[in-house]
Amino acid sequence: MNGYWYGPYSYSSYVPYVQPVAHDQSEERMQIVIRLIQEAIADERHDELFYDYLLSVAPTEQEKKVITGIRDDERKHRSLFRQIYTQLTGQRPPITGEGETFQKPASYLDGIEQALMGELKAFEKYRVIYKYIPSQYRDTIFEIMTDEMKHASYYNWLYAKNK
């Protein structure tokens, strides 16, 4: 047998079937990507504000350092999504969430839990973007997705530490 062995298929002989994408289906997928990127820009801004609040109530310097790193990543993600949106559409993304406020959580622990769930939801959304976005943007989306998983892990640690 040639190649590597993966279950019932050898690596060298197995080629997955990929259904051709009709032009209108491709356009529809691009519209989904653009809409989800617009949502991601607004979501990342909301997360940044929310994490600023968590930072203000974090009980230790270690926790503040972790949340600061996550907040800074959210700023980076927002910037990356804005760049991708501009490249895909030829236009700047609409301004959203600039005067935005958010509902303060009942406690620091509740805020950590909300942040954890938000990071996991973001990952799910970004996975759809990754699936449909042109391939030249996939490395950037992958970086953002792995950051979201890292953030979820940190928030899980913060939650366990403060429970």
Rank of each mutant, 00 (worst) to 15 (best):
L55D: 03
L55K: 10
S56R: 11
V57M: 10
P59Y: 03
T60G: 06
T60S: 14
E63V: 09
E63A: 13
K64S: 07
K65Q: 15
K65W: 11
V66F: 10
I67P: 02
I67Q: 07
I70E: 05
I70T: 10
I70Q: 08
R71I: 03
R71C: 08
D72P: 00
D72M: 11
E74R: 06
R75H: 12
R75G: 12
H77G: 04
R78Y: 09
R78V: 02
S79H: 14
L80H: 12
L80Q: 13
L80V: 13
L80E: 12
I84Q: 01
I84T: 10
T86V: 00
Q87D: 15
T89M: 09
T89A: 02
T89D: 10
G90M: 02
G90Q: 06
Q91M: 15
Q91D: 15
Q91W: 06
R92K: 13
R92H: 11
P94N: 00
I95Y: 09
T96I: 09
G97P: 11
E98K: 11
G99V: 04
G99M: 13
F102P: 13
K104M: 15
P105Q: 09
S107Y: 06
S107A: 12
Y108F: 14
Y108E: 05
L109P: 02
L109E: 04
G111E: 07
G111C: 02
I112R: 04
E113Q: 09
E113W: 00
Q114C: 06
L116C: 00
M117H: 12
E119M: 05
E119Y: 01
E119Q: 07
L120C: 01
K121N: 15
A122M: 05
A122E: 08
A122F: 05
F123Q: 07
F123R: 12
E124P: 02
K125S: 05
Y126T: 01
Y126V: 03
Y126C: 06
R127L: 14
R127P: 01
R127C: 00
I129L: 10
Y130C: 03
K131I: 07
Y132W: 14
Y132K: 03
Y132A: 05
I133L: 04
I133D: 01
Q136V: 07
Q136D: 05
Q136F: 07
Y137K: 01
R138E: 03
D139V: 00
D139F: 00
D139M: 01
E143A: 14
I144K: 04
I144M: 07
I144P: 08
I144T: 06
M145D: 03
D147N: 14
K150M: 11
H151F: 01
A152V: 08
S153K: 09
S153D: 10
Y154T: 08
Y154R: 12
Y155H: 13
Y155L: 11
N156Q: 14
N156V: 01
